[in-house]
Design a binder for these strands. Structure first.
Length: 423
RNA sequence: GGUGAAGUGGGUGAGUGGCUGAAACCACCGGUUUGCUAAACCGACGUACUCUAAUCGGGUACCGCGGGUUCGAAUCCCGCCUUCACCGCCA
């Protein structure tokens, strides 16, 4: 959620930014200005009434002490009138405030200047292309779902039996590969200075709201009605919320956190050939990196995080490219996002495996995550990125590294897997 | 799940109807003293909204959360949440 103060001072920038996003409901912006004005008027008026009431109450106390009962009684009537007026105003103020907030919730983050305009993923900019040649496997190459059957790596039908579609069961060396990747990613993050956390996998409504999953991504999350809790779609949610309602000191920056969690996504309505195998599943594992940073440094940090994810791809010896998302494809809460795509050689497709974003103050406004800047408090910036998401990385590893003898395991993973060939 | 106790500022903790946005102590910050450190002393020390040209100054709200009583609530009443202790169940 953008700050209302930001609206007051940056009207033109907001309108320009929303155009880059191809945002349709521009009239909401004017409505926000209108309600803001009404709200402030009501606030001032109410404060004045309350001030009068407080003053009178004090005087009534004094009158009683001075044994001037009658005068005190007369003043009580005055207070009663004020109270009546006050409660009407208070009601109006509450309504206006929540209407205003509802509107603010509907406005996405303003894109960074470097974000290209565009309406869909077609318009994303290739920020860094793959410089080598893409692997060509020839006719006999198998997509990862066939390789999975051949080597008993994971089983989707078994997942259907236990749960339903989109819940793969990893087995044997496949399970081991999964664990190897998680450990490798966590170790790399630790080496890069991230503090490891193991967060809860279910979160409450306040938490989901603060990082922006609610209200706009309601349908994306699994919801446990009995306890009013949501299964996390990403570790970003619980990890960033560790710092909800916090005031940091400048020397606390940067806060660097990492965590491994399973992620649960309903992915309602997305079925078809392009979601076969591990391309899109309801439960997958991911190591997330999160940073909380000073506003002046957050874009340097974003590039540092992009470099970290790049190094992971390189160590895994996977062909990848980096996209700068266009306005139309940018997530609701993000100001700038770089997507990482791995080339999956048998499918001959690019698969998204990481998304690295700067949210600027969009999350911290809801999180009330601030830092001390001289006498004032200011909102910090939050950033996060997948480092990395597992299911699709496994898909790419299987496809790209297939040989007649089995799947070659990248060198860097071998100490984690304990084997060099998955067969 | 049951029973009991408790939730006050960064921390400890006082405060049972007005003089309490909140004592005192500790921590933090600024200063005096000092060869340096320490000690001692002095001062400042919550957040949000709002008025204002203003990070000067004023107003309002906040003592777990939400309601209520009252001219007036941290203080009284009701509901909820959380924590702790004991019991039950359990990886």
């Amino acid at each position: 959620m953008l700050e209302i103060g930001f609206f007051r001072e940056n009207r033109d920038r907001i309108i320009a930014g929303l155009k880059v996003r191809n945002f349709k409901e521009m009239d909401l912006v004017d409505e926000i200005f209108r309600l803001d004005e009404i709200r402030r008027g009501a606030q001032t008026e109410l404060d004045n009434i309350l001030s009068d009431r407080n003053r009178l109450s004090k005087e009534i106390g004094d009158k009683y002490k001075a044994e001037q009962r009658e005068e005190a009684e007369a003043m009580k009537a005055e207070v009663a009138t004020l109270k009546e007026k006050g409660s009407v105003l208070e009601e109006a103020l509450k309504t206006t405030t929540s209407d205003l907030e509802d509107l603010l919730y509907k406005i996405p983050n303003i894109p960074n200047e470097s974000v290209p305009a565009g309406t869909s993923e077609e318009d994303n900019e290739v920020f860094r292309a793959w410089e080598g040649t893409l692997p060509e496997l020839g006719e006999s190459a198998l997509p990862h779902w066939d390789l999975a059957k051949k080597y008993e790596i994971f089983d989707l039908e078994l997942g259907v039996k236990i749960t339903g579609a989109g819940f793969p069961v990893f087995q044997g060396k496949g399970a081991r590969l999964q664990r190897a990747l998680i450990n490798f990613f966590l170790d790399e993050a630790s080496r890069a200075g991230y503090r490891e956390v193991v967060p809860p996998l279910l979160v409450n409504e306040d938490t989901a709201r603060a990082t922006g999953q609610l209200p706009d991504k309601e349908g994306q999350m699994y919801y446990v009605e009995k306890d009013d809790l949501y299964l996390i779609p990403t570790a970003e949610v619980p990890i960033t919320n560790i710092y909800r309602d916090t005031i940091l000191k400048e020397e606390d920056f940067p806060v660097k956190l990492t965590g491994y969690t399973p992620c649960f996504r309903r992915e309602a309505g997305s079925y078809g050939a392009h979601v076969r195998g591990l391309n899109r599943v309801h439960q997958f594992d991911k190591v997330e990196i999160v940073q909380i940073q000073h506003p002046d440094k957050s874009y340097d940090t974003l590039h540092e995080m992009v470099a970290h994810v790049s190094s992971l791809m390189e160590k895994l010896e996977l062909p990848y490219r980096i996209l700068r998302l266009c306005g139309g494809d940018l997530g609701f809460t993000s100001a700038l996002t770089f997507d990482f795509e791995v080339y999956s050689a048998a499918q001959q497709r690019w698969l998204e495996v990481s998304s690295v974003s700067n949210f600027e103050t969009f999350q911290t406004n809801r999180l009330k995550l601030r830092f001390r800047d001289g006498k004032n408090t200011r909102l910090a910036h939050t950033l996060n990125g997948s480092a990395l998401a597992l299911a699709r990385i496994i898909a790419a590893l299987l496809e790209n590294n297939q040989t007649p003898e089995g799947i070659k395991i990248p060198k860097v993973l071998q100490t984690y897997t304990g084997f060099e060939l998955l067969n």
